[in-house]
Simulated scan of single mutants.
Amino acid sequence: MELECQLPSVPRARSIIRQVLKSWGYPEAVIEDAGIVTSELATNACLHGRSDGCEQFGIGLAAVEDCLTILVSDSSSDMPSRETVEISEESGRELMIVEALGACWGSVRRPGSGKVVWRPVSLCS
């Protein structure tokens, strides 16, 4: 699903992912973690993608056997990287929060332009 690359779209992205996972029967703890990961990756796409001309970002889920992965895509060619952030700064912690929830995360370039950032969610929450 594509959403406008604006910060007000982030809560909508989180809500959509939560609704889908609830309809699929996932436990609340997994739904909550997936919502947080979605929010942080979508925020990152909006904050950094917009400066690169991104007008929309995409959200998706990949569920294979016992693995659930959150996917967020945008048209920016800049690949994400974890930054050191001063305690007084208001942003820049998105990937630190994603890492704090455990598991790995990564990104891949899309053919043509853009990227997809992914992060699995533990089903053992």
Score class of each variant (00 low, 15 high):
G106A: 00
E89D: 15
G60P: 10
A63D: 14
S73L: 01
S51I: 12
G58W: 04
E90S: 08
C104Q: 11
G49Y: 00
S75A: 15
I70E: 09
W24C: 15
R18G: 11
T84D: 09
S107L: 00
V20G: 02
S39T: 09
E89F: 15
V30Q: 02
G92A: 11
L41Q: 02
S88R: 10
M96W: 11
D66V: 00
E86N: 14
D52G: 07
L47V: 13
V85T: 10
K22F: 11
K22G: 12
H48L: 10
A63F: 10
E89N: 14
D74S: 09
A100T: 05
V64P: 01
D74R: 02
V37M: 09
E90V: 11
G49V: 01
D33F: 03
E86I: 03
E40V: 02
V37Y: 05
D66K: 06
G25I: 02
E89L: 08
I87V: 11
V20H: 04
D52E: 15
G53L: 02
A103Q: 12
P27K: 01
Q19D: 14
V30G: 01
G58F: 09
P27E: 06
I17A: 05
E94F: 13
V20R: 01
G49D: 01
G60S: 08
S88V: 02
S88M: 09
C104H: 12
M96D: 15
G102W: 13
A100L: 14
A100M: 11
C54I: 01
E65F: 05
H48P: 06
Q19Y: 10
A103K: 03
A34E: 03
M96G: 14
V20N: 04
I17P: 02
G35V: 04
I87L: 15
E83H: 08
K22N: 12
F57G: 02
E65M: 04
D66P: 02
L101C: 08
A100N: 08
L47K: 10
E32V: 09
S88Y: 11
E89V: 06
D52V: 00
E94W: 13
P27Q: 03
R82C: 15
P27I: 01
G106L: 01
G58M: 07
I31E: 04
E65G: 04
V98M: 07
I31R: 00
M79L: 15
S88L: 13
D74V: 02
T43A: 14
R18P: 12
A45Y: 08
V85M: 09
E55I: 08
Q56W: 15
A62W: 08
M79Y: 09
A100D: 09
S39H: 03
I36F: 04
E32N: 11
S75V: 10
S107Y: 05
T69A: 08
R18C: 13
L47G: 05
E65L: 13
P80C: 05
G60W: 08
G92R: 04
L95I: 07
S88D: 11
T38C: 09
P27C: 05
I36L: 12
L71H: 13
I59C: 10
